[in-house]
Amino acid sequence: MDVAALYTFAWRHAHRVPEPVLRAAATLAADLTWLRHGAGVRRLEANYARIRPDLDARAVRRLSREGMRRYLRYFREAFTLQGADADQLAARVRAEGEENVRPVLDDGGSVVLALTHAGNWDLAGAWATPHLAPVLTVAERLEPAALFTEFVAFRRSIGIDVLALGDDGVFRDLVRGAEDGPRLVPLLADRDLTARGVEVDLRGHRARVAAGPAALALAADAPLVPVGIFHERLHGERRRRAGSAWGIVIRFLPPVPVPDAADHRTQIARLTQGWVDAVGEFLVERTADWHMLQKVFVDDLDPERYARTRARAGEI
Rank of each mutant, 00 (worst) to 15 (best):
D31R: 13
D190Q: 00
E99T: 10
L301W: 11
L187M: 04
D107N: 10
V227L: 09
E98N: 15
F9K: 11
L35P: 00
I268D: 05
N47P: 02
E199D: 08
A114D: 05
A214M: 06
L234H: 11
R16L: 10
W11R: 09
F252V: 00
Q273G: 08
H205K: 05
Q273P: 07
R206E: 12
R191M: 04
D122G: 01
A261L: 11
D221K: 13
L283F: 07
G197K: 01
A14L: 09
V93C: 11
G109Y: 07
L283N: 09
E179P: 00
F154K: 06
Y71G: 01
H117V: 04
H131W: 07
L123M: 11
G119E: 13
M1N: 08
Y71M: 11
V256C: 11
D180Q: 08
R155E: 01
L35M: 14
W275C: 04
A269E: 13
V279G: 04
E281I: 05
F154P: 05
G109K: 00
M292S: 08
E232V: 14
S110P: 05
A86Q: 15
A39F: 10
T149C: 00
T33V: 12
V17A: 05
L28M: 14
A242E: 03
R92L: 11
V200N: 07
W275D: 06
Y71R: 09
Q267G: 04
G212A: 13
D87G: 06
S64H: 03
E99S: 12
A10E: 07
T309Q: 15
A95G: 06
E140S: 07
A307F: 13
H205P: 05
A26P: 00
E99Q: 13
A86L: 09
R206Y: 08
P18K: 10
E98S: 11
Y7G: 03
G125E: 09
D56I: 06
P144R: 13
S64C: 08
G243F: 11
V185G: 00
R183T: 07
G38S: 06
E45R: 14
I51T: 03
A10H: 10
A114G: 01
L147Q: 12
D167M: 01
E96S: 10
R208M: 11
L35H: 13
R76H: 08
H13T: 12
W11F: 15
G159K: 14
D277F: 04
L89W: 15
L136W: 03
A195T: 10
V170N: 05
V198E: 05
R16N: 03
G119V: 12
R191H: 11
T8Y: 08
L301C: 11
W121C: 02
S64L: 07
L105Q: 05
H205R: 04
T266L: 06
R69G: 10
A30C: 01
R61Q: 04
V185D: 01
R61E: 06
T8K: 08
L202D: 03
R305T: 15
D106K: 14
E19N: 05
G119R: 12
P20W: 08
A30V: 02
D180M: 02
Y48E: 02
R61I: 11
A269D: 14
A261W: 13
A30Q: 02
W246T: 09
S64T: 08
D277L: 07
L202A: 04
D168C: 03
A39T: 12
R141F: 02
F151S: 06
V225E: 03
